[in-house]
Design a protein around this nucleic acid. Structure first.
Lengths: 190, 190
DNA sequence: CCAATTTGGTACCGATCGGTACCGTTTGGC
DNA sequence: GCCAAACGGTACCGATCGGTACCAAATTGG
């Protein structure tokens, strides 16, 4: 018996890993349970031992997307010296990656059309987490209205990401960076 | 026999109208053929007389979204006097509407994950049409680098629209308008 | 080494998916 | 008034959807 949590169940991990990739690359509704089972080598019963339903898995995956993306961005920015404008350099890299297929959270909000659905709400929360991070970043950089700037940064990021879906280049992130530069130049510093 | 086109087939019109609303409000994959038939009162056979497949209908609907949205925006801007900044006022109105569920073209690109699919390509073309319109608008307003500005306007619009999906207010469009104002103030005029 | 747990595999469930075939009825032009 | 086209309804198709039940093999802790 384990007194704290439990060991990482093998089957569950493989399932999550397969779902992360398939949901992102092909869409949530487009990937059925059967696909997940064959891709992960997990038995059907094991699936429903770890998740009460496909929706349950979806919520887990979408939440994972959010925390991982924010962490990835924070690491990228830190590795570039920590200035806010580094956000758009990291973004450009992501958009140029061959497996890029947009923002998983935006995609989830689109696919889970009902705003009251769990998947939609979790995806929306993911964005708030990123805004909070941008807020800290801009506050550390000394900008007075850091919260308002963070929300505008988020919109620039999302606009660039959606655009990169059809342009598949670093250009959208570069354009967003240009606009962000104007924002920062016009902003008051502490 | 009709020598030019033909009369608007009743069944087809009802089908298109029902599909426009249901695809937009609930998602393309979420709405099956059966739903479309019962919502439009069209018989199953009639459906496949007018469209070779559901995908065929989807392409028709997505194309319709694009032309209608661009026309709607052009009318709104014209009614507001024709200055480029009016774009964001019209956008705010759309985002505040109760039936708002994002940009139909973005949603279609997300749902039709495969970039080579017909629906995805048509949705992407829709965006180009809007950029072309913004280009004309900014050129008419006397801006030298109107094309580059149009592409940045498009990203601001898309970023605001995606954000409005979770905020459901006029704020995202207002923020986008602020950034557009900075862009225009920094731009050269002819 | 044994017992408990977790595992993958499979058969099966009702419901729905997109699509075809055929029906009898309604509609509209000549 | 007739003929043809367009129509709505229904039965049906194989495939897949999400989900349950059960089983035998593998794994693991004591």
């Amino acid at each position: 018996m384990h007194y704290l949590g439990d060991m990482a169940t093998q089957a569950r991990d493989r399932l999550v890993r397969a779902a992360e990739e398939l949901f992102y690359s092909e869409g949530i509704r487009a990937v059925g349970v059967e696909r997940l089972l064959s891709a992960s080598g997990v038995g059907r019963a094991s699936f429903y031992r770890h998740f009460s339903s496909k929706d349950d898995l979806v919520v887990t995956i979408v939440r994972g997307y959010g925390t991982r993306w924010k962490q990835w961005m924070a690491d990228e920015v830190a590795a570039r010296g920590g200035e806010p404008m580094a956000v758009f350099d990291a973004l450009a890299d992501q958009h140029a990656a061959p497996e890029f297929r947009g923002c998983a959270s935006i995609n989830a909000m689109v696919e889970a059309a009902d705003p009251a659905s769990a998947a939609h709400r979790v995806a929306a929360e993911n964005k708030v987490v990123v805004i909070d991070y941008l807020d800290e970043l801009l506050e550390s950089a000394g900008y007075r209205e850091h919260r308002a700037l963070a929300e505008q940064f988020m919109q620039l990021i999302d606009g660039a990401t959606v655009t990169a879906l059809r342009e598949r280049s670093r250009e959208p992130a570069r354009r967003a960076g240009e606009m962000a530069r104007l924002l920062l130049d016009a902003a008051d510093k502490r």
